[in-house]
Write a protein that binds this DNA or RNA. Structure first.
Length: 553
RNA sequence: GCCCCCGUAGCUCAGGGGAUAGAGCGUCGCCCUCCGGAGGCGAAGGCGCAGGUUCGAAUCCUGCCGGGGGCACCA
């Protein structure tokens, strides 16, 4: 019996009790979802629910009375060995060993599709992340969103969403001009401009542009040549480093196309028709304060030039017109000030903020060296790039380290720790567990233990076994929750729990016969099912994080 | 001044209003005639402060303290 099945059974008991008048409330007032949790202490059984505590008040009964009623009904459910009332009104449930053991069969039979859900089925999601300006390599701060964003895309897809990964390529503004001027200055052997970029990569790109266009310095518009080729080269490098990090976008959207195609003007016209625009001081404004922004925003400046937000307006409208009902944008904490104006903009279009537009703010990565904060500056060229991270620890450790923490938390990354390749990255703990499952399967198969020859879940009675089975059963709920809250780190934390449960089980429950004299029994075969189920979930979970699941390490 | 995030073990971080708050690393002590010891078992060690809501608060609300970030007709 899976936790989902148990939850359904509990709800059915409650609806029954309500319908027959024993609960003192109408059947319709039983919550749609009854939460089933793992109790903290093993002595409290396999699963626990606090539903009786929640229903006590509406039912007008003491919590323990509701719990007692529920426990009595649950005791009659097939697969439930016992249901006890505990504490203020918890119902603790212990399953039959065989019923709990069926979890292994369920997983092995579903294979890689175990853990998938339909919570986001039919949703067309546009997930925009990274979107770093092509004025330099992606630095470590941006890498966090690459890891988290790509993982979120995988998790949403596992819930049935149709996800497009999108990168907004800002190739239009003043920062690009600064970049071009910096390249030009470098090529002429001059110091970078006051507001420009420094660093080794500027040197390299400038040389490459000169190689591509030998007359770049003598042509009529040198800066334009450096801009065009420089951005192209920088962009190619960014794409490549993302690809090497295991992140491939479906759409690279160029801001330029919005201005060239007239999309900006269309968006402005649309908003004007809806009465959201007004003119003041020679500029055109969007009345974002009507929807909670703290000030109105200039869309077209008094000099006639479009302000930055005009691109955002057009871009949002473009995404919606491409058929995405959910536009999700991941931004760093240094951009959180945009949230209220973006949400207001969404409302100005007549959409629903929070539904059609979601903005996820992630906190920054704090770089340390020797425990001391490291100040990074693109201007000074002291940046730690995505490539540096991959060179230092590899893709798996890098992605895992960045994806295993909540995006709400600022995280510290100590470069010396990383470059030392120490074992304190939990990704190895999880990957090792996976490699172990593969090893066990390989050796067991050589010994003649075959899944197809038998499965007797009533043999899975060891305590470490029931823990492992229960943890395996939590996977679909974890994935669903990670998708719902847009929190990939939940998957990583879950995998660490699963790996721990597996290691403990492995330590005391042998899968293979001890030696050639020992016959292969149903216990060996059944445990091989458990091993396979674990391998399946570890592999799928790592896949959701974009981390490899090695068979040997 | 206003807005957002954070404050949990020595360090880095988990923790869906529920029972005795967890993991990794670090420290100390155990376990290889045993499917891979990148493992397992044990010990020490913690919710910034003060109120409030609740049967019940690390979790929700308010204030304070501390850290980070943001408040342009820049992009």
């Amino acid at each position: 019996m899976t936790p989902e099945q148990l939850s359904t059974a509990i709800r059915a008991c409650l609806v029954d009790a309500a319908a027959s008048g024993r609960l003192g409330l109408p059947a319709g007032s039983v919550p749609d979802e009854v939460r089933v949790e793992r109790p903290r202490s093993r002595e409290h059984g396999d699963w626990s629910t606090s539903i009786a505590l929640q229903l006590a008040k509406p039912a007008g009964l003491p919590p323990r009375e509701v719990a007692t009623l529920l426990a009595g009904l649950l005791a009659g459910v097939p697969g439930v060995q016992r249901a006890d009332v505990a504490g203020p009104g918890f119902v603790n449930i212990t399953l039959d060993v065989a019923s709990a053991g069926e979890q292994a069969r369920t997983i092995v039979e579903l294979g890689a599709s175990y853990g998938e859900g339909r919570a986001a089925a039919g949703e067309r999601v546009n997930l925009e992340f990274v979107s770093a300006n092509p004025t330099g390599p992606i630095h470590l701060g941006g890498v966090r969103w690459a890891a988290v964003g790509d993982s979120l895309a995988r998790i949403l897809a596992a819930q049935g969403a149709d996800v497009t990964r999108e990168y907004y390529f800002n190739d239009h503004g003043a920062q690009i001009d600064r970049f071009a001027r910096s390249l030009l200055a470098r090529a002429r052997g001059e110091e970078p401009p006051e507001d420009g970029y420094g660093g080794e990569y500027i040197h390299e790109i400038a040389d490459q542009v000169l190689a591509m266009a030998p007359d770049a310095l003598t042509c009529s518009d040198p800066q334009e040549v450096f801009r065009q080729h420089g951005v192209e080269l920088m962009f190619a490098e960014i794409k490549q480093s993302l690809h090497d990090f295991g992140v491939d976008f479906d759409v690279f959207f160029h801001e330029n196309t919005l201005h060239e195609s007239g999309a900006v003007q269309r968006a402005i016209d649309r908003l004007r028709e809806q009465g959201q625009m007004f003119e003041k001081d020679g500029a055109l404004w969007l009345r974002t304060t009507a929807y909670g922004d703290d000030k109105d925003r200039v869309v077209v400046k008094s000099d006639g030039q479009p302000a930055y937000i005009s691109g955002d307006l057009a871009y949002y409208l473009d995404k919606r017109e491409r058929g995405f009902d959910r536009v999700i944008i991941m931004l760093g904490a240094d951009h959180h000030g945009y949230v209220s104006r973006m949400m207001a903009m969404c409302a100005c279009f007549g959409d629903v903020p929070g539904t059609n537009l979601e903005i996820l703010i992630g906190q920054m990565v704090n770089l340390l060296r020797d425990g001391e904060p490291l100040r990074m500056s693109k201007r000074a060229g002291t940046v730690v790039t995505m490539g540096d991270l991959v060179d230092a620890v590899g893709v798996d450790a890098g992605r895992y380290a960045l994806a295993r923490s909540s995006s709400d938390s600022m995280i510290d990354v100590d470069l010396d720790l990383l470059t030392k390749r120490t074992n304190d990255n939990p990704v190895f703990y999880v990957q090792y567990a996976h490699a172990r499952t593969c090893n066990v399967t390989r050796l067991a198969t050589e010994d003649g233990v075959r899944l197809a020859d038998g499965f007797d879940p009533s043999l899975l009675g060891h305590d470490t076994e029931s823990v492992l089975l229960a943890v395996l059963g939590q996977f679909p709920g974890v994935v669903a929750r990670a998708a719902e809250l847009r929190e990939p780190h939940r998957v990583a934390r879950y995998l660490e729990t699963l790996a721990a449960a597996y290691h403990k089980w492995y330590d005391v429950c042998r899968v293979r016969p001890q030696d050639a004299d020992e016959a292969v029994t149903d216990l060996h075969r059944t445990r091989l099912w458990v091993n396979e189920a674990t391998r399946t979930v570890l592999a799928r979970g790592l896949d959701l994080l974009g981390v490899s699941a090695p068979e040997r390490m």
